[in-house]
Amino acid sequence: MAKVEAMMPWKDVPLGGTILEPGNARKFKTGDWRSKIRPVTDKEKCIKCGMCWIFCPDMAYTHREDGYFDWNGDYCKGCGICAKECPKDAITMVAEEE
């Protein structure tokens, strides 16, 4: 399990467990329980449409300056949605080593 950065005494927890810092889920890295497969993009086939980025339920893709999308193993669960949704079949799910 990823280390939680929210270990604080109960009196310091913001009211009702409210999260005061937008987007801090980024600090909570969950990629370590990914199914033992991950997506690999073939840039030759990619048309930079962004479907993988839109559909990924874990926001594991980030948009690069050159238009391609970078994959991030800190959050990817290996669900395969991006590979399924890619209109150009540019994404292949490949087995990961232990």
Partner: peptide, 12 residues
């Protein structure tokens, strides 16, 4: 912006 009713793992 704040997030209410978010995830709370066993640690919190």
């Amino acid at each position: 912006p704040v997030s209410m009713g978010a995830f709370g793992s066993p640690e919190v």
